[in-house]
């Protein structure tokens, strides 16, 4: 589902990522771990086409998004749900309206949007708070609204950047369980986190970054860190 080939990213000649090779399968739940500044958020930003890589290729479901035209980026993003540590909710819109934006950009009729948004909020346990503004919701509830917004369009990929960074341990488990459930239903989920308790609680593949490089790619039940670098695809696959 996600393939990165020799991906590097530099800001003013300062490398943020160097020679990243990765392959993440459909329905996988993958943790990106590492200290602050390791390049976890940069990697997520490249995958969501928020910015292009300096070098290399990023292939999402067979499409090379590293060299995509700017006008096509919105269409790629519709396939990628994103969840942030600071939730990124629109302050003056209700939970229902915040979730609705993902369908509104697709041109979905208003009635259908309302029905689907209410149903997704119900699924994440916020059925009673449809009309609540973000400021009236707890951190965990706000993050669940953000997750609902990310998944309502049934994206193939869900990227979460420190999604539990602002949550207490109970809410952290709650949110992580939601993400694990989504992965179980076929969504590819990539979670950037430096919370070791999450990695212990959810034994999934862990890709460890340090100074912009992959230093470990450990799959569940594996003892030693393997060299999990993907082979580059044939030209026709990229195109």
């Amino acid at each position: 589902m996600i393939q990165l080939f020799h991906v590097s990213k530099s800001y003013d000649d300062a490398p943020a990522l160097s020679g990243i090779n990765l392959e993440i399968d459909k329905g996988e739940l993958v943790f990106l771990s590492g200290p602050s500044g390791a390049g976890k958020s940069t990697l997520l930003r490249l995958i969501m086409s928020a910015e292009p890589p300096t070098e290399g290729q990023i292939v999402i479901a067979g499409r090379n998004v590293a060299r995509i035209r700017r006008r096509a980026i919105p269409y790629i993003r519709r396939n990628i749900g994103v969840v942030f540590q600071d939730f990124q909710l629109i302050p003056n819109r209700t939970a229902l309206e915040n979730v609705s934006v993902s369908l509104e950009v697709l041109g979905t009729p208003a009635r259908e949007v309302r029905e689907k948004a209410a149903a997704v909020l119900e699924q994440v346990g916020l059925g009673q708070k449809l009309q609540a503004l973000p400021e009236r919701l707890s951190g965990g509830e706000q993050q669940r609204v953000a997750i609902a917004r990310a998944v309502i369009g049934e994206p193939a990929i869900l990227l979460a950047d420190e999604p539990t960074g602002n949550l207490d341990p109970d809410l952290t488990l709650e949110v992580m369980q939601l993400l694990a459930d989504l992965s179980g239903r076929g969504t590819t989920v990539v979670v950037a986190t430096h919370d070791r308790s999450i990695l212990e609680r959810f034994p999934r593949r862990v890709i460890r970054l340090e100074a912009g490089r992959v230093v470990e790619d450990r799959r569940p039940h594996e003892e030693a860190p393997p060299e999990a670098e993907a082979a580059p695809p044939a030209e026709e696959e990229i195109a």
Partner: peptide, 23 residues
């Protein structure tokens, strides 16, 4: 790939116009 195809769907122009007017 079927999910990608969904996202490339043009949607309803009327719904987009109604959204723009509402906003």
């Amino acid at each position: 790939m079927s999910r990608l195809a969904y996202a490339f769907d043009g949607g309803s122009a009327a719904a987009r116009a109604a959204y723009a007017l509402r906003k």
